[in-house]
Computed example of a mutant assay.
Amino acid sequence: MAEIKNNQALSQGKKEPKTPRRGAVNEEQRREQRLMVLTPVVSMLLALIVGAVIIVCLGKNPIEGYAAMLQGSVGDLSKIGKTLERACPLIFTSLAAVFAYKCGVFNLGGEGQFIMGGCAAAYAVITFGLDGVPALLVALVMGIIFGGLWGLLPGILKITRGLNEMITTIMFNYIALYFMEFLYKNVYSDEGLPQTPAMPKSAHLVDIGPAHAGVIVAIILGIFLWYLIFRTSFGFKIRAVGLNPTAARVNGFPVRFLVLAAFVISGAVAGLGGAVELFGKTPFRLADGFGSGFGFDGVAIALIAQLNPAASIVVAIVFGMLSTGGTMMQSVIGVPTAIVDIIRGLIIIFAVAGMAMVKLPKVKAFITAMFSKDKKAEVSA
């Protein structure tokens, strides 16, 4: 009995280690989320400042240049329409990258899947002589199916042979590119020219306001994917596999199936973008340059948007503004359009570097200490 009493006295006298309160943990998480949201905004501002310095070094006025850029991208309804149409394919490829990355797979084949979607749409309409609304519906469905199939192939190679999806998807990009070249130069060459015949005018996407209907489709798709990823059990499983596939497997999740589904859905989104681009934007045909650069730009946009489908739409529109406004800036102040490419590259660099810095333990500790000092100052005041 005496020994029990002594042990009780010791246990009462010993101080238990302090654990962080739940409210403090939640506050820290909210603070980190706010910083992650601010990071892309700050990155864009820094990129514009560096771009302004470069413009000054060229002997031009950056304020006048940026004003011309805004005028050229959102100056009136027609320019807003061009900006949205330029952003439309970027929305599709960025959404494709977001969905794949959420499952922990790195789909760098958005460009190839985009191209194959356009090729399948053109093949179906030209081969079967379709016209009108049926031609458009068949084209969109074919774009979804063949884009998904082009995403399925590297997925199968990954889950069966363990091949790195970054390498295989890049390889499939080149296969898609040369397959498209074979189509428009040999199979469906328009009177010997290196291009396919134009898609039937009656099958073009209708204009809604200043832009074609494909922009609305892209925005609705982005909202749907956000809901699917963050508000459904399927999306929870996708995110769980992306965070820790081993833990997901132990908890009974079909990891291999989910990885394959992520590849297929990602490819289908990009393939739909290819069909929309073909039937929504001039010249309404396959030719050299179709889909060029959209895949890797989509990956960059997905990273800047921190793998959030809704944020990807916003970032894609910003990239569209830079593309359409760059031409006006060049004509007004006489700087090369490469300035816009530099600014876009700087946004990517600053955004990725900023997101990495926010997650560093020392940076987290510094921010926590700074906020705690501010709170103490408010209490003392």
Score class of each variant (00 low, 15 high):
M1I: 14
I4W: 04
N7V: 15
K15L: 12
K18G: 04
P20Q: 03
G23P: 02
R31H: 09
R31W: 07
R31E: 13
Q33L: 15
R34M: 15
M36N: 11
L38K: 03
P40L: 08
V41L: 14
V41Y: 02
S43L: 02
M44V: 15
L46T: 02
L46W: 06
L48H: 02
L48W: 05
L48F: 14
I49M: 15
C57H: 05
L58W: 09
G59Y: 00
G59C: 08
P62G: 01
Y66E: 12
Y66P: 12
M69N: 07
S73D: 06
D76T: 02
F92G: 14
V98Q: 05
F99K: 00
G104H: 00
G104W: 02
G110S: 08
G110V: 07
G112F: 03
A120S: 08
A122M: 08
V125L: 10
D131Y: 07
V133A: 11
L137A: 13
V138M: 11
A139C: 05
V141H: 04
I144W: 08
I144T: 07
L152T: 08
L153Y: 06
I156M: 13
L163C: 11
N164S: 07
M166L: 09
I167Q: 01
T169F: 00
M171N: 00
N173R: 03
Y174T: 01
A176S: 04
Y178N: 12
F179Y: 13
L183A: 06
Y188S: 13
E191T: 09
P194S: 03
P194Q: 03
S202H: 05
H204E: 09
L205A: 04
D207L: 15
P210S: 14
A213G: 15
G214Y: 10
L225T: 10
L225N: 05
L228M: 15
R231Q: 07
R231S: 08
T232M: 10
G235R: 01
F236R: 00
N244H: 09
P245Q: 04
A247Y: 13
N251P: 00
N251W: 03
G252Q: 06
F253E: 14
F253A: 15
P254F: 01
R256M: 15
L258R: 02
F263G: 06
G273F: 06
G274R: 00
G274T: 03
A275C: 10
A275V: 11
L278N: 03
T282D: 13
P283C: 05
F284M: 03
F290D: 12
S292R: 11
F296E: 03
I301K: 07
A305T: 00
P309R: 03
A311H: 05
I313M: 14
M321I: 13
M328G: 06
M329V: 05
I339M: 02
R344A: 13
G345Y: 12
I349F: 15
I349P: 10
I349C: 14
F350R: 07
G354P: 10
M357T: 11
V363D: 02
K364A: 12
F371R: 11
F371K: 11
A377H: 06
E378K: 11
